[in-house]
Simulated assay, not measured.
Amino acid sequence: MAWDEWERIKSDSTAQQSASTRLNQVAPGAGNGGVGRPDMASSPAAKKAAAKAIGEDMEPGVTRDGKHAAESTNAAVKEFGPKDGHGWETSSALKRAQETWEKQVRMLLGRLASEKQALSATGISFRTNELDTTARLARQSRIDGI
């Protein structure tokens, strides 16, 4: 391999590396932090408001609407059911659909409850992490003077 060819390969390699690994900072306002912006933000007030909305609006609404659908379906099952010994197959199909509906409503209520609990616990978790980090930094600053 000639010396000139080696120099050309090194130059090409350096040019490729510098172009592909050239990220020193995020441009201001480009999202995900940037200059003057925190890397992570947590809004306890927003989490509390979301948990409150789940508990006061969504869960009661799902419960109410789930019961309303069950009442309407029960009425339809009764109407299509056997009166003179013969009933419509629609009655049994509606009954199965109602059972599926009730299961889905219970699952949705369970999911809402877990989301509400997670929103409430997140604030506590962030605060605990913040206190822990502050304590560790305070311990480190005492050692720095030695």
Rank of each mutant, 00 (worst) to 15 (best):
A2D: 15
W3T: 05
D4M: 04
W6C: 04
R8L: 00
S11E: 13
A15G: 01
Q16N: 05
S18A: 04
A19L: 04
S20L: 09
N24Y: 11
N24F: 12
A30D: 07
A30H: 09
G33R: 03
V35H: 12
R37P: 01
D39N: 11
M40Q: 12
A41G: 11
A45R: 08
A45I: 10
K47I: 02
K48H: 08
A49I: 11
A53F: 08
I54V: 02
D57R: 13
E59H: 04
R64D: 09
G66E: 00
G66Y: 00
K67Q: 15
A69G: 02
A70I: 02
N74W: 11
G81N: 13
K83D: 01
K83M: 09
D84M: 11
G85Y: 02
E89I: 09
E89G: 15
Q98V: 03
W101L: 01
E102C: 00
Q104S: 12
R111N: 09
E115I: 12
Q117W: 08
L119I: 08
T122H: 12
G123Q: 05
F126D: 13
T128D: 15
T128F: 08
N129Q: 13
E130Q: 12
T134R: 05
A135P: 07
R136P: 07
R136H: 14
L137Y: 03
Q140H: 08
I143F: 07
